[in-house]
Structure formats: structure tokens, C-alpha cells
């Protein structure tokens, strides 16, 4: 067993953890500002597709990162327009966007590449984590976000919008503004997470987000809406996944169909044991 926990294993763990962690941090700050963020899955998926499209057309994996972040921001824009401006239910908007992402990325795949399930090979960062800017972005975000939440005007207003929107109104700030700034940053982070899905394997695959957005949101709730803690919880999920891959490689006889269920079962167990409201949710979450 000791040969399992090597540097290669650590690199694999980081590679797997980054999409989860970026989505969770994006979701945490969005929700802290009072907007329910079930659209994480859509941001990951569109981010992953845009990363492939940008990297493919420019020949640069860095352009792919930018594309992924822009796609995350764009999805967030639609989400905010529907839920803040049109006042649609935030849970339903999120689920609808996820369905749109599932069909939409496949439609784009068909339209642009005339393929049903895979994009062409694109320039990628591959298995190396040290030279991958998305990995750096995840680590920087994990350190900077907790600081920004308590020390910057952006963070203070964001938290006020989530907990006491009335207090913002009394100082002449519309609560929707900090919510928009928070969610757009969150969308960019989540979109970068989507880009990592594509740029670590060198291509887009239909439905490659595979429920990671939902798992990330569960980790946000588990971490009590604290972004860095949520990222750590995501590393836990990634550890289980990476460990699993090792077990499959060394073939210890656990059927693959069941091994793939581990992150889902873990998330469900965590929710069942820790409860859904571990820590306090932002007071005005989902309310306008």
C-alpha cells in the first residue's frame, strides 16, 4: 500500500481536486452574497467546452483558461438576469441552466466539430500540475478569498448582501450590486474549474462535469459557506477518487461500476451524518 502515496499520487489528487475546489469556492462566495448557486454544473460544463473551443482555435492552452472563465461569467450573467432582475426562483433557474448546459454543449459540439461526444484534441497542460496556471489560481483563491471576505470592501459588502441586505440599503447601496460582483467572480472561478476538466485531459467530452457542480455545492454547505474550508472538503472527495483510481490500477477486485460511485456515496453520507445545515447559511440566501 505504501507505494500508493507517492508524488504522482499527490499530483493526481491535485488534478482531480481543482475543478471541485474552484467550483466550491465560486459557489461559496456567490451564496455568501445571498444567491443560491445550483448552476455550478452549468458553469463547469460550459467552461469546459469553451476551454476546448478557445484552445483549439488559438492553439494555446492559456487561451483555453480565458475561454473557460468567460463562459463561467456568461452563464452567471444569464443566471443573475433571471433570478435578480426577473425574480425567478433561484433553485429552478440553476437546474434549468444545468439542463441547458447538457444539451447546449452537445449542440455546440455537433455544430462546430460535427461530433457527438468528443471535441478534437486540444493543446493542454496535461498531467503536470506545477506549470498549470489553473492549479495556481485554485491555491491563490483558497488563500485570498477568506482574506478578501473580511478585509476588502468587496468582501464586506458581499457578506452584508447575504446576511443583512437592509443594512446596505441604509448606507445607500443596492444589495444586488455586491451580489452581481460576487457571483461574477464566482462564475469566473467555476469556469476556470471547467477549463481544468478539459485542459488536464486535452479535450472536451460530453457531460464531462458529471455532477461535480452538485458535489461542490454539497461541500460548500458542509463547510458552512467558508470558501477555503469548502476547497479542503473538495480535496477530501478528490482523495477518495484518486485512491480509487489507484485501486483500479492495482486491481484489488472492487467492481469499477461501484468504485465510480464513491464520491456520490461519500457526499450523501456526509449530508446524512453532518446534516444539510452545518454552520449557518447566509440569512437572506435565496431571498430578494
Amino acid at each position: 500500500m505504501s507505494d500508493v502515496f507517492t508524488l504522482a499520487f499527490l499530483a493526481q489528487l491535485i488534478r482531480i481536486a481543482v475543478p471541485y475546489a474552484l467550483a466550491a469556492m465560486g459557489g461559496a462566495i456567490t451564496e455568501r452574497s445571498g444567491v443560491i448557486d445550483l448552476a455550478l454544473e452549468a458553469k463547469l460544463l460550459f467552461g469546459a467546452f469553451a476551454a476546448a473551443a478557445f484552445a483549439h482555435s488559438t492553439g494555446s492552452a492559456y487561451a483555453g483558461v480565458a475561454g473557460g472563465m468567460m463562459a463561467g461569467v456568461a452563464v452567471t450573467g444569464v443566471q443573475l438576469f433571471c433570478s435578480l432582475r426577473l425574480r425567478a426562483d433561484q433553485v429552478i433557474v440553476g437546474v434549468a441552466l444545468n439542463v441547458i448546459a447538457l444539451g447546449g454543449t452537445r449542440f455546440l459540439l455537433q455544430l462546430i466539430y460535427h461530433e457527438g461526444a468528443n471535441s478534437p484534441q486540444v493543446p493542454a497542460f496535461g498531467h503536470d500540475v506545477v506549470t498549470n496556471p489553473i492549479v495556481w489560481l485554485a491555491f491563490i483563491a483558497a488563500v485570498a478569498l477568506p482574506f478578501a471576505l473580511v478585509r476588502t470592501r468587496w468582501g464586506l459588502r458581499l457578506r452584508a448582501a447575504g446576511d443583512r441586505p437592509d443594512s446596505l440599503v441604509t448606507v445607500g447601496v443596492a444589495p444586488s450590486n455586491p451580489r452581481i460582483y460576487a457571483a461574477l467572480v464566482g462564475g469566473a472561478l467555476t469556469g476556470a474549474g471547467g477549463a481544468q476538466l478539459t485542459l488536464s485531459v486535452g479535450g472536451f467530452v460530453a457531460d464531462m462535469s458529471g455532477g461535480r457542480g452538485y458535489i461542490a455545492l454539497a461541500m460548500v454547505i458542509l463547510a458552512g459557506w467558508r470558501p477555503a474550508l469548502a476547497a479542503v472538503a473538495c480535496a477530501g472527495i478528490a482523495f477518495a477518487e484518486a485512491f480509487n483510481i489507484q485501486l483500479q490500477v492495482s486491481d484489488v477486485g472492487i467492481p469499477n461500476e461501484l468504485a465510480q460511485l464513491v464520491p456520490y456515496v461519500l457526499t450523501l453520507l456526509v449530508l446524512a451524518i453532518a446534516g444539510g445545515k452545518h454552520g449557518k447559511p447566509p440569512r437572506s440566501l435565496g431571498k430578494l
Binding site: C82, L86, R87, A88, D89, I92, V93, V95, A96, L97, N98, V99, I100, A101, L102, G103, G104, R106, F107, L109, Q110, L111
Partner: peptide, 22 residues
Amino acid sequence: PKELIEMLQGVVVLAVACAGPY
């Protein structure tokens, strides 16, 4: 492509979520 219609099914949900409050 049939994916176009799959996408529309999500659009319907989004539209109905927005149209109700409107």
C-alpha cells in the same frame, strides 16, 4: 441536430421560471 431540441427542453424550464413571477 437533435441536441438542439434537448437544449430547448431546458430553455422551457428557464422561461417558465421567469414568466411566472413576471
